[in-house]
Design a protein around this nucleic acid. Structure first.
Lengths: 269, 269
DNA sequence: CTGTATCCCCATGGATACTG
DNA sequence: CAGTATCCATGGGGATACAG
């Protein structure tokens, strides 16, 4: 190979060589996926990596194997079963990815917010997703598992339907709460038990595009608000929501409602 | 944008985003070149980066500008003069490149040796280059400047023509000597002054492919030999070279020759 | 001098069908 | 299940000419 003089150091060339290992569309994704989940089979990888085709995964695995980043183990023939795992060199790529994400955290502040839509109905998550995809990065979840996994992904706001299967609504929202803002989607008229749910806002279905965007923007604006202000805003949102769908007379007859009103008055001072 | 659940963390996605900044053929090269040379104009870059076309350099610079890695300064209109320099974010890519080259040093030991051919005649460097390009990474230099620059590049063996312009043969070889093995190419019959030149081997032009490959391989084999063995081998090579082209009678009449012979005998004990 | 505009090539990777 | 084989679409990037 004839290399022309480009005035770069040997280390620079080495860096470029390593970079070329990671510069294929799916190479780094496969490495990161194996790092996160440990040993995986061919189909496991196909499932974990959306949108990759079998042919390309095959090629990627071969290339990564040649590069010494992963190892291939045949666990059984007929039915053929193969497992892939990172080698020591592959694990050591951690330091590179760390350095990359550090750079990103320092200089790529301009990330678009991420919104997670959790609803058992794929048509719903699809529709809402399309509505807001132009402004945000959208993730979709259709059961408790998907939701759990997606929450690792740096979500800013969660649109959460109360009827998500495999979940205890209240418990889930409480977990979500720590890392993201939550907007609860309710189907039919909720009672004052709503006040107990630790969400930041409530929307009643059916809902229109404009309403969703407004609600999300509002939560994004308040992302960095202190805890007490957050509680106040959440309480106010729930109360005015209740007052919208129930008569005030009926509400004042309920203890929980009156206590919440008092609490809000306290907070507002 | 709708992102499908791939089970990767937010930091992983960030790393992938940063990686995509560097995953174009010339992006990292431009960044590294600017880091090494500081502020450069468009044509400076074209010269420093062999094989890049104007169109592609233009596109690369625009993309890197958009990504916030470099800044564009117009220093004069008509004739238009533009300078490019790294931003703080661009400088900070250092840490990424460092991490990449560190990984390379740890896991990419299998580098092919690099041979630098220094001769004022491009036909010579071209021909020799073609001869050995299948086995080694080849660099070419045609004057003192090019040679100086290429020496940073982790060269293992230098094929050096004594008549290189802009160079003091002896001084240059002495510099080279510290990082690489040197094989001197001489045109006409050299005298015993050859003994003073700090090279590891001597070839007399014209030379054939086989001879060059042998000489290079020999030096590569001895890369890690201790200093005293190196001196012995070099002295032996020069002496047998002299003995090949001069009669032994004539040589023994020269003080330098006899002293060198004695020195070799000493070393061989 | 510093770029666009144009045209063209080919490697990457997507879709689908088939095999051990 | 874990891949090949085949075909095809796209776009990154090379060469050249030209423009501000």
């Amino acid at each position: 190979m004839i290399r022309h003089d480009d005035g770069l150091s040997a280390d620079d060339h080495l860096a470029l060589d390593v970079l070329s290992l990671l510069s294929k569309k799916w190479h780094p994704v496969v490495v990161l996926t194996l790092r996160r989940h440990g040993t995986l089979g061919f189909n496991d990888l196909l499932e974990h990596i959306p949108d990759i085709s079998g042919k390309v995964l095959s090629g990627t695995l071969e290339a990564l194997g040649d590069a010494g980043l992963i190892e291939r183990h045949v666990t059984s023939e007929s039915p053929l079963r193969v497992e892939y795992e990172l080698t020591a060199a592959g694990e050591d790529m951690n330091s590179v990815f760390e350095s990359l994400s550090n750079w990103g955290n320092r200089h790529l502040e301009s990330a678009t917010p991420t919104v997670l839509i959790a609803d058992s109905d794929r048509r719903i998550t699809g529709m809402y997703g399309d509505w807001i995809a132009t402004r945000y990065t959208v993730l979709r979840a259709h059961n408790g598992d998907e939701l759990d996994r997606s929450l690792d992904d740096g979500v800013d706001v969660v649109l959460f339907d109360e009827g998500l299967p495999g979940t205890d609504t209240s418990a889930i929202i409480e977990t979500v709460d720590k890392t993201a803002r939550t907007i609860l989607l309710v189907g039919d008229r909720p009672g004052t038990e709503l006040l107990e749910w630790p969400c930041d806002d409530v929307l009643r279905k059916p809902v229109v595009r404009e309403t969703v965007l407004e609600a999300i923007d509002e939560q994004l604006d308040r992302r960095d608000a202190p805890t007490d202000q957050r509680e106040r805003a959440a309480l106010a949102a729930k109360l005015s929501f209740l007052e919208l769908i129930h008569t005030r007379e009926r509400l004042t007859r309920i203890d929980d409602y009156r206590q919440a009103r008092d609490r809000l008055t306290d907070l507002e001072e």
